[in-house]
Amino acid sequence: MTTLPADALAWVALAVGAALVGFAKAGISGTSSIAIVLFAAVMPPKASTGALLTVLILGDLFAIRYYSRHVEWRLLARLAPWVAIGTAAGAVVLYYADDAAMRPIIGAILLALLALQLLMKAQRRDSERPPLPPLLRHGAGAATGTAAGAATMLANAAGPVMVLYLFLSGFSKLQFLGTMAWFFLAVNLVKVPISVGLGLISWTTLIMTALLLPAVAVGALTGRAVVKKVDQRQFEVATLAMTGVGAALLMV
C-alpha cells in the first residue's frame, strides 16, 4: 500500500469496518467478517489483508484491556504449533497469489467459515453439552490451529474457527473473551513481519491505521457496553447473512 484512499466513501467504509472490528473484539464475535468484506471492497485485496491486520491488532489491545484476566493459557499452548503450521502454509499461498486470485480466495474462506458459524449455532441448541473428551479435544485442537493459522494469514478470518472450538470446549463467556483476545494478539503480532516481508504493510498502512483508531475505540466501547443487552440470536443471524452476501460478492 503506497497511497491513502482519496475517496470519502472509501474512508466511510474503512471507518465502519474498523468500528466493527472493535465491536467484534470486545463484544459479540462475528462482525469482523463484515470488516474483511469492506476493506477488500475499497482496497486491492492483498493490500487489504495488511491494512486490516494492523486494525485488528488495535482491537486485540482493547479486548485484552477488558478481559485479560480470563485467558486459558494451556489451550493457547496446545494450539500454538498447529497455528504456526497453518500460518506458514497461508503465507506461501499469499506470496504466489495475485490480487485477482485473492478476491475469490477471501470469499471462499468466508463462505467456509460461515458454514462453521451455522454449525456452531446448531450445536448451541444443546445447552447441556459436555466438554470435548481428551482425544477428540486434541484432534480438534490440531485441526483448529492449522485452519485458524491459514485463515488468518490469507484473510484475517480465523475468528469463526476459534469461536466454534472454544464453544465446543465448554468455555464460559469470560474465558471465551479472554482467550480469544490473547490468541489473536499473539497470532496477529507474529503475522506482522511476514506481512511486511510480503509488502502488505508499509508506513502508509500504519498512518491509515492511526487515523482509524477512533473508530476502533468507538466499536470496542460499544461492544463492551451492549454485549449483555442485545438479542444475540438476532444479531448473529444478521451478521451471518451479511457475511454470506459479502463473501458471495467477492467470488463474483
Rank of each mutant, 00 (worst) to 15 (best):
S29I: 04
A40K: 02
K25E: 11
R65E: 00
V16Q: 11
L61V: 14
L61K: 07
A6N: 08
V16K: 09
L38H: 02
A19C: 12
A15C: 10
L56C: 11
L14N: 04
T31V: 13
L53I: 02
A40C: 10
A10L: 01
A26P: 07
F23E: 01
I28H: 06
R69M: 11
S33N: 14
W73F: 13
L38M: 05
L61N: 02
I28M: 14
S29A: 15
G22C: 08
L53P: 04
R69T: 14
S29L: 05
T3I: 13
V21T: 11
A47C: 02
A6M: 05
P45E: 06
A26L: 07
V21N: 01
V16W: 07
A40L: 01
A19W: 01
A13H: 08
L58Q: 11
V16I: 15
G22V: 05
A10W: 07
M43C: 11
L52R: 09
V71Y: 02
L56I: 13
A51V: 06
L53V: 05
T49V: 14
V71F: 05
A18E: 08
A51K: 00
Y67F: 15
H70A: 15
G17H: 03
L9A: 06
V37E: 03
T54Y: 00
I34T: 11
F23P: 01
A26W: 07
I34F: 07
F39N: 05
A6G: 12
S29H: 08
Y67K: 03
L14W: 05
A19Q: 03
P5S: 07
V21L: 00
G30N: 08
A63E: 10
A35Q: 03
R69Q: 15
A10K: 04
S33V: 06
L4Q: 11
L53C: 07
P5W: 03
V42A: 05
A63G: 13
V12G: 08
L9H: 03
S68V: 08
A40S: 15
S29K: 10
S68Q: 15
A6K: 12
V37H: 03
A63F: 07
G30Q: 05
A51Y: 01
A10T: 11
I34S: 09
T2P: 00
G27A: 13
L4V: 12
I28Q: 07
V21I: 15
L38G: 00
V12H: 02
A41E: 08
T49N: 08
S32H: 06
T3H: 14
V21Q: 00
I28C: 07
V12Q: 04
A19H: 01
T3D: 14
L52S: 09
L58F: 10
A19N: 04
R69L: 13
S32R: 05
I34Y: 04
P44S: 13
P45Q: 12
T3Y: 08
G22F: 05
